[in-house]
């Protein structure tokens, strides 16, 4: 796909006004919750940007050669820029650091991700002194509040968790090629691809459980029926945690449909815990996405944990289907 096909046509005044209104609502909400706005750099040294990005995102990052040498990465994600800023300024943290941002990111379009080259996002990052679950609840609440602040009609908020599916895949110990194909099959909810992979790389109780979880999203009682097997495979506690969070959000935000989608986690090598996504009627892609990524800061030499999410403002500005 040519980069020219993905050029952003720009925003005229009506859309610009809509964008600013959305940004104001979000930044107002986030500021009120103690998240300070920052402007992460648009260019980072390539090696550092890629160290702070998921594998999938790295392959879509655009690069430029700086005069005098050195390769620079254009911003494909705000998280990498925030992590670069935080890891240069802080060796340790006494308390969580809360930041928010809004602006454009550039990503190479691919046939399976046809969004334009340049798209708009706003988001929040909560960086904790240490890795762990601390802050998950706060960030989920904020994601729910963000959706309501945007005025998205009849949204669905979905929770997933790397800790439910990742350990099952780890136990299967497939080679890298099989693991990548398995992650792709799960992301596509493809039972037939799972069956074919089982024939090629080996059947196992874990693979059967993954297949059973594939189409049960949004029906916790159906997943509960799988509890004995989840207990045997050591992932029941994580399922209980997702259920608890789902129940909590359902009670606190009655206008929001909360679903549990245990297998629908993208960027498996990036997220390390809870994940969150939101969808809206008439919108073909998620309007909000994020999760816990405790592996990022250790890769940059810091022992911090982090949870972040982005609101896909560009998608919200597009005409509804």
């Amino acid at each position: 796909m040519s980069a020219l096909e993905g050029l952003n046509p720009g925003l005229w005044w009506d859309d610009t006004a809509s964008l600013r209104a959305l940004e104001q609502r979000l930044l107002g909400l986030w500021g009120g919750r103690g998240f300070a706005e920052v402007v992460p750099p648009f260019l980072l040294p390539e090696t550092e940007a890629l160290a702070a990005s998921s594998e999938a995102l790295s392959s879509r990052t655009l690069k430029v050669q700086a005069n005098g040498g050195g390769s620079l990465a254009l911003r494909s994600d705000f998280t990498a820029g925030v992590a670069w800023m935080v890891s240069r300024r802080y060796r340790s943290l006494d308390a969580p650091l809360r930041v928010c941002y809004s602006g454009a990111v550039l990503r190479r379009p691919t046939p399976d991700r046809p969004e334009g080259l340049e798209t708009l996002q706003g988001g929040c990052e909560r960086v904790s002194p240490a890795a762990g679950f601390e802050g998950d609840e706060e960030m989920l609440r904020l994601a729910a509040e963000s959706l309501l602040a945007l005025g998205v009609k009849d949204p669905v908020l979905e929770l997933g968790h790397w800790g439910l599916v990742g350990p099952l895949m780890d136990r299967m110990a497939w080679p890298a090629e099989g693991r990548a194909a398995l992650e792709s099959a799960l992301n596509r909810k493809s039972s037939s691809a799972l069956a074919a992979l089982g024939g090629r790389f080996g059947q196992s109780p874990e693979l059967v459980l993954l297949g059973d979880l594939l189409h049960l999203g949004g029906r916790p009682e159906a997943v509960d029926a799988l509890a004995p097997r989840m207990r045997t495979m050591g992932v029941l506690a994580v399922w209980a945690q997702i259920r608890e969070f789902g129940g909590l959000l359902g009670r606190e935000f009655p206008g929001l449909a909360v679903r549990l989608e245990p297998t629908d986690v993208r960027h498996w090598s990036y997220y390390t815990g809870l994940t969150v996504k939101a969808f809206a009627p008439g919108r073909p892609f998620a309007v909000l996405s994020g999760g816990r990524y405790d592996g990022l800061y250790p890769a940059l030499g810091r022992s911090f944990g982090a949870f972040g999410f982005a609101v896909h403002l560009g998608r919200l500005l597009e005409k509804e289907g």
């Binding site: 399976d112 991700r113 909810k189 493809s190 691809a193």
Partner: peptide, 11 residues
């Protein structure tokens, strides 16, 4: 061949 970003619900 194309690897589209869709759910592959069933054969």
């Amino acid at each position: 061949e194309d690897g589209p970003d869709v759910y592959d619900l069933r054969p």
